[in-house]
Simulated assay, not measured.
Amino acid sequence: MSDAPSLKQISLNQITTEQWTLEEAVQGCVRQEISWISVWRHKLQEVGLTKSKKLINDAGLRVSSLCRGGMFPAATAAERRERIEDNKKAIEEAAELNTDVLVLVCGPAPDRNIESARKWVEEGIEELIPYAAQHGVKLGIEPLHPMYAADRSVISTLGQANTISENMKTDQVGVVVDVFHVWWDPELYKEISRAGQNILGFHVSDWAVPLPDIFKGRSMMGDGVIEIRKMRKAVESAGYHGPIEVEIINQAIWNQPGDETLNQMKKSFIEHV
């Protein structure tokens, strides 16, 4: 019996083909027989929600998640309120696209006070729970690698994300495990087990050495040092059997034809995920 996952699980996270519009990404998935797509909000806004929904539905695709909500911390109460309202809009968009997962990139501290920023993250998520429940959408806290703490997220470990999720005492909140962000963590497998049924998503890419760029540094699976298959088996053992998103932010990959990327994705998925 093969250790490889089923290609039925593969999802194109839209940032992997950033050079494509949503319509082009949908058409690419159809050509390459990929049945899942993860939609990014900036791509959604280019096309509009109604047309986006029709494109996806007409193609017979399913949406694994909407990326992203979050970005809760801000310097003033008025700005924090704006962030909450934007997250509510994202919840509505996720529901309209018929996905039950909104990925949360929680946001950096607006000043040097990282403790306050983490408190605002918790308060923001807690406030969104009733609205998310009303729309049938779950909030997936995605911890980001510590090198992103200054500009993208003060939630850096799966342990932190698990603690917030558990503190909410609701199945509306869970965690997203992205191999690029958590592979280094000595507590990783303990925290995957702890997350259990609260794992709402699993994202794959790889960590090349040397890392070509902090933001656009992710590589195709198999081109780096991450034990991706071991992590995939761990999230499955914990209870996650949903779509697996290929999420690669890499300028060289963006510069090549999208269909070439999707072909590489499928091959690397079978060999390394």
Rank of each mutant, 00 (worst) to 15 (best):
I56H: 03
K53Y: 08
V101R: 09
L128N: 07
A95S: 14
L55H: 03
E96R: 15
T17R: 05
K8N: 13
A78G: 08
I15W: 15
L139M: 12
N13G: 15
A75W: 04
V47H: 03
R68I: 14
V39F: 04
A74C: 07
N13W: 12
R62C: 07
A75Y: 06
K88T: 10
E85A: 09
S116R: 15
K43F: 15
H135C: 07
T21Y: 05
T17L: 10
G69A: 12
I56K: 02
R83Y: 09
L55D: 00
L55A: 07
A75I: 12
G136I: 15
G70P: 04
L7A: 09
A59H: 01
E79Q: 13
C29V: 00
N98M: 15
W40M: 12
G124R: 11
H135P: 10
D111K: 02
W40V: 14
W36T: 04
E46N: 10
L139N: 07
V47G: 02
E33N: 14
Q19N: 14
L66V: 11
S11R: 02
V103Y: 03
I37M: 01
L66E: 02
P110I: 00
E123D: 08
Q9L: 15
G60D: 05
A78R: 11
S38M: 10
E123H: 02
S52V: 10
V121E: 04
R81L: 11
T16D: 02
E96Y: 15
E46S: 14
R80D: 00
I10K: 13
E82W: 05
A74Y: 05
S35D: 11
T99Q: 02
K53P: 10
V26F: 01
I37S: 03
L22Q: 05
I56D: 00
V30K: 05
A95F: 06
P130G: 10
N87K: 10
A117K: 07
I91G: 04
V39I: 05
S64L: 02
N87M: 07
I56A: 08
G107T: 02
P108G: 08
G48V: 04
K88I: 08
L139F: 11
K138Q: 14
R31Q: 14
R81F: 08
N98P: 09
M71W: 14
E85P: 09
E93W: 15
E122G: 12
T76W: 00
K8F: 09
V103M: 10
L49W: 03
R80I: 00
E23T: 01
G69D: 06
N113L: 03
V137G: 00
V105I: 11
I114N: 10
F72I: 00
K89F: 12
L22A: 00
L49F: 09
C106M: 05
Q134L: 11
